[in-house]
């Protein structure tokens, strides 16, 4: 419990000459879900990509205490990092089965777990992933990360663009696996954040502006509004027994706020 599974310090990253991650430091505890929050374009995706070495970065990244920031992406992943990218990035031309087979790294991949969580995929094994619905593609993307016995999962906006019912299914699947593996989760839907997250890290303009417990953060309406540009979810969710109400999910308010880019 003591040592964080992932420790990032002084992380900088640039894309096309633009600094998108600036001196970012945070840790992901060895259990639970850490939510990485912030408005659109603050650098959440870039932070995750920088951790994985998918974009040029400098800084100190440790996985269970070992530095990994000099390693190429595939070696970092091989050490037990599962990645569910924003926008799913399934291989459209490959079948569901091929997408999953490609992701299998372990000698004994956990096919039963994946089949239990996403029974839909079993029937669609032979279907090309490009012809799946958005929700089904997200299942494939999650399944790819869950097939292996990872030490940490980096999950980037798994509910983006999904219907409320599917959002619930994805959240449930994540909740189920969060018992066995720590997760760093980028998520805009604050209901889902409340359901899953134990800790939060909030970014603004490529920098960390808040870290702490998830419940305390979400309960602080002023802070949520100031940092995310939306109102907290607790009033609505208390009233509707936690059922995700679409109008209450986080949609960034771009008109108010100190817009930093």
């Amino acid at each position: 419990m003591s040592e964080p599974i992932l420790a990032v310090s002084g992380l900088h990253a640039r894309i096309a000459g633009q600094q998108v991650v600036e001196d970012v430091s945070f840790t992901v505890p060895s259990s639970g879900v850490t939510a990485l929050l912030g408005r659109n374009g603050v650098g959440k995706t870039s932070t995750i990509k920088a951790v994985l070495g998918l974009i040029d970065r400098t800084g100190d990244v440790r996985l269970a205490g070992d530095r990994v920031d000099r390693l190429p992406t595939h070696r970092i992943v091989q050490r037990g990092v599962g990645y569910v990218p924003e926008d799913r990035e399934v291989f459209a031309g490959l079948t569901v089965a091929e997408n999953l087979r490609l992701a299998e790294r372990d000698a004994e991949p956990r096919r039963e777990l994946v089949e239990r969580l996403f029974p839909d995929l079993v029937q669609r094994k032979a279907q090309r992933a490009g012809t799946l619905s958005g929700g089904q593609q997200q299942m494939v993307s999650l399944a790819r990360a869950l097939l292996n016995d990872n030490r940490v999962l980096l999950v980037d906006e798994p509910t983006k663009g999904l219907a409320p019912k599917i959002v619930g299914e994805v959240a449930e699947a994540l909740e189920a696996v969060a018992d066995t593996v720590p997760i760093l989760l980028v998520e805009q839907n604050l209901h889902v954040v409340r359901q899953l997250a134990t800790d939060v890290v909030v970014l603004s303009g490529g920098r960390v502006v808040h870290t702490g417990g998830a419940a305390e953060f979400l309960d602080d309406d002023d802070l949520v509004h100031r940092l995310l540009g939306v109102h907290g979810d607790h009033a609505e969710s208390d009233a509707s027994e936690g059922a995700p109400a679409p109008e209450a999910s986080a949609t960034t308010d771009t008109t108010t706020e100190e817009g930093r880019a």
């Binding site: 998918l54 992943v77 091989q78 990645y83 091929e98 087979r101 490609l102 992701a103």
Partner: peptide
């Protein structure tokens, strides 16, 4: 073959192949 699978996937999205832990 597995290499064939990696190549077909890599033609589509090379970065995602490496992000699955494969030395493309």
């Amino acid at each position: 073959t597995r290499y064939g699978l990696i190549i077909r996937a890599g033609v589509e999205n090379r970065h995602m192949v490496t992000a699955l832990g494969i030395d493309v």
